[in-house]
Write a protein that binds this DNA or RNA. Structure first.
Lengths: 208, 208
DNA sequence: GTCTATATGGCGATAGAC
DNA sequence: GTCTATCGCCATATAGAC
């Protein structure tokens, strides 16, 4: 079929899928090999060991997540436009790649030290990300607000429902079809919720 | 030392700790035995296998989380009081037991089918939980809002920062000491954020 | 109930032929 | 580059003495 792809790419595609779904401990080299249509020996020919293959995938995945954050929040748009675009994009993105965020969260929890170097090599701009939003809050809405809290509020509202989907469905007894509709609704609900909250501060600016 | 405790309790304490931190795949029966001060054979004498020990811990942990939700939101208080109490309690609780939520989320992601039965045996009241809040939104604030979205907003704002702590610290380059202060601040910030957002709906009730 | 010793299987990794 | 065969280890689980 797709024997046009190089073996290395077939391996990376397979590894990405397995690592994303099962994490480092849950993943099996045999399963990755099967999915790539090769055998274990060849896996180790291309990548020294499980660890190095995992780090390759982690680097790629973390970069993908961080990149979009940079792209959107360092662009030239009003803050509320950025938030709308971000919420829409991210709900689509993580719904499609449903394991991607949890993979990163778990990896960072399991081996924070090994992964620190990899993260530092990424093109992240944490300082800029915070400054930009702080400035826009001030200029566009007259608010003296800690931008980090706003970021975390946005991320929490967007990411939590996707990551904790099975937990939420268990607690509130939501069937699969309703859950899909529910997530779709949040593309509109979350920006509105945030906009309303920010409007509220304009009267009493008591947000830290 | 604490040889007063029965062996079974020592095992459960050890298993709880190891499973919470490392999940099912990451946990080692040897490590649990060591922590309990016994050997592996005795572990299997009390609990048939790793799976059944894990299920015991999962049942207990999930119950703890669900119980508090029920307790607070089915009580007799105003909605905003419930939210304040819930946010305060949960940020304390999951900061103290920092792995507990992620343990449940991961377990439910890994083996949703095996755990479904366990969850159904819990004393959850999903229907009541939703009805109660819906009624209070209407009666106390005049809002026709989907209560599920409000629950998820609250949970996301509270849980996400704790679960994704290492991810957040990596993206925004936050040192450990600042992160502790940051989480503490959220006890006040989150209820305010929610209150402001809900106030916003009172003018234009366009929330679904 | 608690221990030591061991069975059993699976997994990551390597040797070596082609 | 790709394969088959196999090594060596470690993890779960059991047998059997005390």
């Amino acid at each position: 079929m797709d024997n046009l792809q190089s073996t290395e790419i077939k391996i990376l595609d397979a590894a990405r899928q397995v690592f994303h779904q099962k994490g480092f401990n849950g993943a099996r080299m045999q399963e990755i090999a099967d999915l790539a249509g090769i055998n274990k020996a060849l896996l180790h020919y291309y990548f020294r060991n499980k660890e190095s293959l995992f780090e390759k995938i982690f680097n790629e995945t973390f970069g993908q997540i961080a990149l979009k954050l940079n792209e959107i929040f360092l662009s030239e748009m009003t803050l509320m436009t950025k938030i709308e675009i971000f919420v829409n994009f991210y709900i689509n993105f993580i719904s499609k790649h449903s394991y991607i965020i949890q993979f990163v969260i778990n990896a960072l929890q399991d081996k924070p030290d090994q992964l620190r170097e990899i993260i530092l090599k990424q093109n992240l701009s944490p300082g800029l990300l915070l400054e930009q939003v702080q400035k826009q809050l001030k200029d566009e809405m007259g608010l003296d607000i800690d931008p980090l809290h706003l970021y975390i509020n946005i991320l929490g509202l967007v990411i939590f429902p996707v990551v904790a989907k099975p937990l939420i469905q268990s607690i509130f007894a939501i069937p699969d079809d309703k859950m899909g509709i529910f997530l779709e609704q949040r593309k509109k609900i979350v920006p509105t919720f945030i906009a309303n909250a920010l409007k509220g501060y304009e009267k009493d600016k008591s947000f830290i």
